Simulated scan of single mutants.
Amino acid sequence: MGTVQHKSNTGKLIARAIVVIIGGFIAAYGLEAVLIPNSVSDGGVTGISIVGSQLFGLPLGVLIALLNIPFIFLGYKQIGKTFAILSILGIASLSVGTSLMHHIPTIIHGDTLLVTVVGGIILGFGMGLALRNGGALDGIDMLAVLLSRKLPFGTSDLILFLNVFVFIIVSTVFGLKGAILSGIAYFIASKVITIVEEGLSGSKTYKIITKDPDTMTETIRDRLGRSATYDEVYGGYSKEKFIEITCVINRLEDSKMKEIIRDVDPAAFVTVYETAEVKGGNFRKRNIH
Protein backbone atom coordinates (compact mmCIF):
# COMPACT_ATOMS: atom_id res chain seq x y z
CA MET A 1 0.00 0.00 0.00
CA GLY A 2 2.81 2.38 0.95
CA THR A 3 4.60 1.74 -2.38
CA VAL A 4 1.42 2.47 -4.38
CA GLN A 5 0.91 5.72 -2.44
CA HIS A 6 4.56 6.69 -3.01
CA LYS A 7 4.26 6.05 -6.77
CA SER A 8 1.04 8.07 -6.85
CA ASN A 9 2.70 11.00 -5.06
CA THR A 10 5.75 10.82 -7.35
CA GLY A 11 3.49 10.82 -10.42
CA LYS A 12 1.60 13.87 -9.15
CA LEU A 13 4.85 15.69 -8.42
CA ILE A 14 6.18 14.99 -11.93
CA ALA A 15 2.88 16.23 -13.44
CA ARG A 16 3.08 19.41 -11.32
CA ALA A 17 6.72 19.93 -12.36
CA ILE A 18 5.79 19.65 -16.07
CA VAL A 19 3.01 22.26 -15.67
CA VAL A 20 5.39 24.61 -13.78
CA ILE A 21 7.91 24.30 -16.66
CA ILE A 22 5.15 25.02 -19.21
CA GLY A 23 4.18 28.07 -17.11
CA GLY A 24 7.78 29.31 -17.29
CA PHE A 25 7.84 29.05 -21.10
CA ILE A 26 4.46 30.81 -21.42
CA ALA A 27 5.71 33.69 -19.24
CA ALA A 28 8.91 33.86 -21.33
CA TYR A 29 6.80 34.11 -24.50
CA GLY A 30 4.81 37.00 -23.01
CA LEU A 31 8.06 38.83 -22.22
CA GLU A 32 9.90 38.22 -25.51
CA ALA A 33 7.00 38.32 -28.02
CA VAL A 34 5.01 41.19 -26.50
CA LEU A 35 6.42 43.21 -23.61
CA ILE A 36 10.20 43.67 -24.02
CA PRO A 37 10.16 44.56 -27.78
CA ASN A 38 7.69 47.34 -26.92
CA SER A 39 9.84 48.67 -24.04
CA VAL A 40 7.51 47.33 -21.37
CA SER A 41 8.91 45.44 -18.39
CA ASP A 42 7.67 43.06 -15.73
CA GLY A 43 7.86 43.64 -11.98
CA GLY A 44 9.88 41.74 -9.40
CA VAL A 45 13.23 40.08 -10.00
CA THR A 46 12.33 39.64 -13.69
CA GLY A 47 11.85 43.40 -14.03
CA ILE A 48 15.27 44.10 -12.48
CA SER A 49 16.77 41.45 -14.79
CA ILE A 50 15.22 43.14 -17.85
CA VAL A 51 16.72 46.50 -16.78
CA GLY A 52 20.15 44.88 -16.23
CA SER A 53 19.94 43.18 -19.61
CA GLN A 54 19.13 46.48 -21.37
CA LEU A 55 21.80 48.47 -19.49
CA PHE A 56 24.71 46.05 -19.64
CA GLY A 57 23.89 43.96 -22.71
CA LEU A 58 23.87 40.73 -20.68
CA PRO A 59 21.59 37.82 -21.66
CA LEU A 60 18.24 38.17 -19.90
CA GLY A 61 18.03 34.43 -19.15
CA VAL A 62 21.36 34.48 -17.31
CA LEU A 63 20.33 37.45 -15.16
CA ILE A 64 16.95 35.89 -14.28
CA ALA A 65 18.71 32.69 -13.16
CA LEU A 66 21.45 34.44 -11.15
CA LEU A 67 19.29 37.08 -9.40
CA ASN A 68 16.73 34.49 -8.29
CA ILE A 69 19.27 32.20 -6.56
CA PRO A 70 19.10 33.90 -3.11
CA PHE A 71 15.30 33.98 -3.30
CA ILE A 72 15.12 30.26 -4.06
CA PHE A 73 17.12 29.68 -0.87
CA LEU A 74 14.57 31.83 1.01
CA GLY A 75 11.78 29.72 -0.48
CA TYR A 76 13.52 26.55 0.65
CA LYS A 77 13.88 27.84 4.22
CA GLN A 78 10.36 29.27 4.43
CA ILE A 79 8.16 26.91 2.44
CA GLY A 80 10.05 23.69 1.85
CA LYS A 81 12.13 21.51 -0.44
CA THR A 82 9.36 20.68 -2.94
CA PHE A 83 8.53 24.36 -3.41
CA ALA A 84 12.23 25.18 -3.93
CA ILE A 85 12.69 22.38 -6.50
CA LEU A 86 9.56 23.37 -8.44
CA SER A 87 10.62 27.04 -8.33
CA ILE A 88 14.08 26.13 -9.66
CA LEU A 89 12.41 24.29 -12.56
CA GLY A 90 10.04 27.22 -13.19
CA ILE A 91 12.73 29.91 -13.06
CA ALA A 92 15.06 27.75 -15.19
CA SER A 93 12.34 27.33 -17.85
CA LEU A 94 11.67 31.10 -17.76
CA SER A 95 15.41 31.71 -18.11
CA VAL A 96 15.89 29.19 -20.94
CA GLY A 97 12.63 30.31 -22.59
CA THR A 98 13.74 33.97 -22.81
CA SER A 99 17.04 32.83 -24.39
CA LEU A 100 15.36 30.55 -26.94
CA MET A 101 12.69 33.12 -27.82
CA HIS A 102 14.98 36.15 -27.93
CA HIS A 103 14.55 36.60 -31.70
CA ILE A 104 10.95 35.38 -31.91
CA PRO A 105 8.66 37.61 -34.02
CA THR A 106 6.89 40.32 -32.02
CA ILE A 107 3.13 39.69 -32.23
CA ILE A 108 2.03 43.27 -31.42
CA HIS A 109 3.73 46.54 -32.43
CA GLY A 110 3.17 49.97 -31.01
CA ASP A 111 -0.39 49.69 -29.67
CA THR A 112 0.40 50.42 -26.02
CA LEU A 113 -3.01 49.42 -24.63
CA LEU A 114 -2.99 46.10 -26.49
CA VAL A 115 0.65 45.45 -25.51
CA THR A 116 -0.02 45.88 -21.79
CA VAL A 117 -3.26 43.86 -21.83
CA VAL A 118 -2.05 40.94 -23.99
CA GLY A 119 1.42 40.89 -22.43
CA GLY A 120 -0.02 41.01 -18.91
CA ILE A 121 -2.50 38.21 -19.66
CA ILE A 122 0.16 35.88 -21.12
CA LEU A 123 2.62 36.64 -18.33
CA GLY A 124 -0.02 36.21 -15.60
CA PHE A 125 -1.26 32.95 -17.10
CA GLY A 126 2.27 31.46 -17.06
CA MET A 127 2.98 32.63 -13.51
CA GLY A 128 -0.45 31.48 -12.32
CA LEU A 129 0.09 27.98 -13.72
CA ALA A 130 3.39 27.74 -11.84
CA LEU A 131 1.97 29.01 -8.53
CA ARG A 132 -1.11 26.78 -8.78
CA ASN A 133 1.20 23.78 -9.00
CA GLY A 134 3.47 24.75 -6.10
CA GLY A 135 6.31 26.68 -7.76
CA ALA A 136 7.14 30.35 -8.35
CA LEU A 137 8.68 32.13 -11.35
CA ASP A 138 9.83 35.22 -9.44
CA GLY A 139 11.63 35.54 -6.12
CA ILE A 140 10.09 38.83 -4.96
CA ASP A 141 7.14 36.98 -3.41
CA MET A 142 9.53 34.94 -1.27
CA LEU A 143 11.30 38.12 -0.11
CA ALA A 144 7.91 39.62 0.78
CA VAL A 145 7.06 36.52 2.84
CA LEU A 146 10.33 36.88 4.78
CA LEU A 147 9.88 40.64 5.32
CA SER A 148 6.29 40.14 6.52
CA ARG A 149 7.75 38.22 9.48
CA LYS A 150 9.95 41.17 10.42
CA LEU A 151 7.65 44.10 9.58
CA PRO A 152 4.04 44.92 10.55
CA PHE A 153 2.76 44.59 6.97
CA GLY A 154 0.99 41.84 5.05
CA THR A 155 2.68 39.91 2.22
CA SER A 156 0.50 41.51 -0.48
CA ASP A 157 1.30 45.05 0.76
CA LEU A 158 5.03 44.29 0.71
CA ILE A 159 4.89 42.83 -2.83
CA LEU A 160 3.27 46.08 -3.99
CA PHE A 161 5.78 48.20 -2.03
CA LEU A 162 8.81 46.31 -3.41
CA ASN A 163 7.48 46.61 -6.96
CA VAL A 164 7.19 50.40 -6.66
CA PHE A 165 10.99 50.43 -6.34
CA VAL A 166 11.32 48.02 -9.26
CA PHE A 167 9.26 50.32 -11.51
CA ILE A 168 11.32 53.35 -10.42
CA ILE A 169 14.40 51.40 -11.61
CA VAL A 170 12.53 50.45 -14.83
CA SER A 171 11.87 54.17 -15.50
CA THR A 172 15.64 54.80 -15.75
CA VAL A 173 15.78 52.56 -18.86
CA PHE A 174 12.32 52.66 -20.41
CA GLY A 175 11.38 56.18 -19.28
CA LEU A 176 8.35 57.24 -17.24
CA LYS A 177 5.89 56.09 -19.92
CA GLY A 178 7.57 52.67 -20.08
CA ALA A 179 7.46 52.37 -16.29
CA ILE A 180 3.74 53.29 -16.17
CA LEU A 181 2.94 50.77 -18.93
CA SER A 182 5.03 48.16 -17.08
CA GLY A 183 3.03 48.84 -13.92
CA ILE A 184 -0.26 48.40 -15.83
CA ALA A 185 0.97 45.14 -17.43
CA TYR A 186 2.08 43.89 -14.00
CA PHE A 187 -1.31 44.79 -12.50
CA ILE A 188 -3.12 42.88 -15.26
CA ALA A 189 -0.75 39.92 -14.79
CA SER A 190 -1.48 39.87 -11.03
CA LYS A 191 -5.23 39.79 -11.70
CA VAL A 192 -4.82 36.93 -14.18
CA ILE A 193 -2.72 35.05 -11.59
CA THR A 194 -5.62 35.44 -9.14
CA ILE A 195 -8.00 33.95 -11.70
CA VAL A 196 -5.66 31.04 -12.55
CA GLU A 197 -4.74 30.34 -8.93
CA GLU A 198 -7.86 31.13 -6.89
CA GLY A 199 -7.37 33.08 -3.72
CA LEU A 200 -3.75 33.88 -4.43
CA SER A 201 -3.64 37.30 -2.81
CA GLY A 202 -3.27 37.71 0.93
CA SER A 203 -3.59 34.85 3.38
CA LYS A 204 -5.90 31.87 3.81
CA THR A 205 -7.48 30.44 6.94
CA TYR A 206 -7.83 26.66 7.06
CA LYS A 207 -10.34 25.04 9.43
CA ILE A 208 -9.81 21.27 9.63
CA ILE A 209 -11.87 18.64 11.43
CA THR A 210 -9.90 15.39 11.47
CA LYS A 211 -9.92 12.09 13.35
CA ASP A 212 -6.29 12.71 14.40
CA PRO A 213 -5.86 16.42 15.24
CA ASP A 214 -2.56 15.93 17.11
CA THR A 215 -0.83 14.30 14.12
CA MET A 216 -2.27 16.92 11.76
CA THR A 217 -1.05 19.80 13.94
CA GLU A 218 2.42 18.26 14.40
CA THR A 219 2.75 17.66 10.65
CA ILE A 220 1.72 21.24 9.84
CA ARG A 221 4.29 22.47 12.37
CA ASP A 222 7.08 20.17 11.13
CA ARG A 223 6.51 20.47 7.38
CA LEU A 224 5.19 24.01 7.11
CA GLY A 225 6.56 25.76 10.21
CA ARG A 226 3.08 27.00 11.16
CA SER A 227 1.34 26.80 14.53
CA ALA A 228 -2.39 26.10 14.85
CA THR A 229 -5.20 26.53 17.40
CA TYR A 230 -7.86 24.10 18.62
CA ASP A 231 -11.61 24.69 19.03
CA GLU A 232 -14.21 22.29 20.41
CA VAL A 233 -17.12 21.92 18.01
CA TYR A 234 -20.22 19.75 18.21
CA GLY A 235 -22.20 17.96 15.52
CA GLY A 236 -25.60 19.62 15.09
CA TYR A 237 -27.43 16.30 14.84
CA SER A 238 -25.24 13.77 16.63
CA LYS A 239 -24.02 16.20 19.37
CA GLU A 240 -20.68 14.42 19.01
CA LYS A 241 -17.68 16.50 20.08
CA PHE A 242 -14.89 17.21 17.55
CA ILE A 243 -11.63 19.14 17.63
CA GLU A 244 -11.41 21.77 14.89
CA ILE A 245 -7.92 22.97 13.89
CA THR A 246 -7.51 26.56 12.70
CA CYS A 247 -4.34 27.54 10.82
CA VAL A 248 -3.53 30.73 8.88
CA ILE A 249 -1.04 30.45 6.01
CA ASN A 250 0.30 32.76 3.31
CA ARG A 251 -0.58 32.34 -0.37
CA LEU A 252 2.62 30.51 -1.34
CA GLU A 253 1.96 27.73 1.17
CA ASP A 254 -1.48 26.74 -0.12
CA SER A 255 -0.48 23.75 -2.27
CA LYS A 256 1.82 22.47 0.52
CA MET A 257 -1.04 22.69 3.05
CA LYS A 258 -3.35 20.67 0.78
CA GLU A 259 -0.60 18.09 0.35
CA ILE A 260 -0.19 17.76 4.15
CA ILE A 261 -3.95 17.29 4.70
CA ARG A 262 -4.08 14.71 1.89
CA ASP A 263 -1.15 12.78 3.40
CA VAL A 264 -2.36 12.83 7.04
CA ASP A 265 -6.13 12.38 6.59
CA PRO A 266 -7.67 12.45 3.08
CA ALA A 267 -11.14 12.20 4.71
CA ALA A 268 -10.67 15.33 6.86
CA PHE A 269 -13.45 17.96 6.67
CA VAL A 270 -11.74 21.15 5.47
CA THR A 271 -13.07 24.67 4.95
CA VAL A 272 -10.87 27.44 3.53
CA TYR A 273 -11.49 31.18 3.93
CA GLU A 274 -9.92 34.16 2.21
CA THR A 275 -8.18 36.28 4.86
CA ALA A 276 -7.74 39.93 3.97
CA GLU A 277 -5.24 40.79 6.73
CA VAL A 278 -3.32 39.13 9.53
CA LYS A 279 -1.77 41.04 12.43
CA GLY A 280 -0.20 40.17 15.75
CA GLY A 281 -0.56 36.84 17.53
CA ASN A 282 1.65 33.95 16.52
CA PHE A 283 1.40 34.25 12.72
CA ARG A 284 5.17 34.40 12.43
CA LYS A 285 6.56 31.09 11.35
CA ARG A 286 9.84 29.36 12.04
CA ASN A 287 12.29 27.97 9.49
CA ILE A 288 11.63 24.31 8.72
CA HIS A 289 15.22 23.32 7.94
Rank of each mutant, 00 (worst) to 15 (best):
I69E: 00
H109W: 04
T194C: 04
A179W: 07
E244F: 08
L137G: 04
F73Q: 03
D141V: 00
M127F: 13
Y76R: 11
V117F: 01
G2R: 13
I159G: 07
N38H: 11
V62C: 01
K204L: 02
I168A: 09
I195Y: 10
E244C: 14
R284V: 04
K77I: 06
A179V: 03
F56I: 03
M127E: 14
L67D: 06
I104D: 00
I26H: 08
K258P: 03
L60T: 13
S255T: 10
V40T: 11
S203C: 10
Y206I: 00
S201Q: 13
P266N: 12
S99R: 00
S93Q: 02
A84D: 07
L181R: 01
I169A: 15
V4K: 09
N38M: 10
S171K: 15
K285A: 10
F174V: 02
Y76N: 10
H109P: 02
E244W: 10
N250F: 14
R221P: 00
N287P: 02
T155R: 00
G61N: 12
L100A: 09
V117E: 00
L181K: 02
K285G: 12
I220K: 10
L162Q: 04
A65I: 07
D254F: 09
K241S: 14
F283G: 12
S156M: 11
F174A: 12
I26D: 05
I26M: 11
I26V: 15
Q54H: 15
F242D: 13
S8N: 07
D254K: 14
L86Q: 05
G90D: 01
K279N: 07
G199F: 03
R284H: 07
T217V: 13
G24D: 00
V278R: 01
D141H: 02
G30V: 01
T10S: 14
L160Y: 08
T217W: 06
I184M: 02
V264S: 08
L137A: 06
I208H: 14
G97F: 13
T210K: 13
A268E: 04
S95I: 07
P105G: 11
F153E: 00
L224D: 05
A276Q: 11
H103W: 04
G126F: 05
M127A: 15
V264Q: 07
G154Y: 05
R149G: 08
V196K: 12
G225Q: 08
G225Y: 12
E259W: 01
C247V: 11
T172L: 09
H6P: 01
I260N: 09
I168M: 09
V248P: 03
Y206P: 00
I69A: 04
G47L: 06
A33T: 06
R221D: 01
K241G: 02
A267W: 14
F283P: 12
G24W: 01
N9K: 06
V166Q: 10
A27K: 13
V196P: 14
I22C: 09
K239S: 12
G135Q: 03
K256E: 10
A268D: 05
S41K: 05
K204S: 08
T10M: 15
I64S: 08
A267C: 05
N282Q: 03
L114P: 02
G30S: 04
T10F: 15
R262L: 07
I121D: 09
H289D: 06
V173E: 08
G119C: 03
S8R: 11
V117A: 03
K241F: 05
V40K: 07
I249K: 05
R16G: 14
K279Y: 12
G126M: 01
M142P: 03
I243W: 05
E240L: 08
Y234W: 12
